[in-house]
Design a protein around this nucleic acid. Sequence first.
DNA 1: GAAAAGCCTGAAGTGGCTTCAGGGTCAAGG
DNA 2: CCTTGACCCTGAAGCCACTTCAGGCTTTTC
Lengths: 138, 138
Amino acid sequence: MQIGELARSTGVKIETIRYYEREQLLPVPQRTDGNYRLYSPRHVEQLRFIRYCRSLDMSLEEVRILIGVLDTPSGSCQTVNALLDEKIVEVDARVNELHKLQDQLRQLRGHCQQPDEVKTCGILMELNRSAGIDKAQI
Amino acid sequence: MQIGELARSTGVKIETIRYYEREQLLPVPQRTDGNYRLYSPRHVEQLRFIRYCRSLDMSLEEVRILIGVLDTPSGSCQTVNALLDEKIVEVDARVNELHKLQDQLRQLRGHCQQPDEVKTCGILMELNRSAGIDKAQI
DNA sequence: GAAAAGCCTGAAGTGGCTTCAGGGTCAAGG
DNA sequence: CCTTGACCCTGAAGCCACTTCAGGCTTTTC
Ligand SMILES: [Zn+2]
Ligand SMILES: [Zn+2]
Ligand SMILES: [Zn+2]
Ligand SMILES: [Zn+2]
């Protein structure tokens, strides 16, 4: 299986696959006489694993760690648990931030119902006012 | 006021301030004889404006647009409204994604209560299983 | 007069890719 | 046999919003 087919069958761009190889996330594949990469089912599996971890918001460094753990099957899975716990805390925090942001954005948007002149626009006035308040708080 | 004081009074790193100047988000300041930058209250205001917009998740390009709008006070504020509406949609979408992610992470974490061997860890088994399912779905 | 604190510049590094420039390889069609 | 087109290769640069680094100048303080 060459790179194009791997790309099609996983939905990962060819350049990304080559990038993962450079980053040592995918094992170096065999080559044909014409220097084309040749992938095995094991590569397909590992690539899917990487993408699934990425979809869970893990960094490539974290994925690298998980792959390392998988390669020592008799070790403990404590690293994995810690990594997930940390990730959960991170995501929760980010969600809280974004909820606040949603409130702020909607409130700000409410300051201008229909477009008016820049100099009297409630949004712009509010943006400047809020920047000033932040100043007072610091 | 020189750069260190501006940095302290706004909580923005010196390097970031210089970066904003290079990116033309802050007007070029005066210089002392010793070539030190000298800032006016107007700079303070604009820097705060930038940071407040950034805290609302706007890109520097969007901030640049807003600053441009502010500089033409007789124009319409339609750009501002459109920008905010788009931002609200973006943030809502991101929040929905993260909520799904929270569910997935917690469910995954539930697959390993106390650390065991890598080869029997429910989390790792689940990670591999889910990556495989994604495969079947594509 | 020397150390410390503050400032300067230009370049490179970060993450996770994407894009680009400039090629080589291989199967099918004329 | 040759050309077209699909496919593949490499190394380098670009993206964003900064941060870090290397190496040096200015000003203040003891
Ligand atoms: Zn308005
Ligand atoms: Zn208000
Ligand atoms: Zn486990
Ligand atoms: Zn499950």
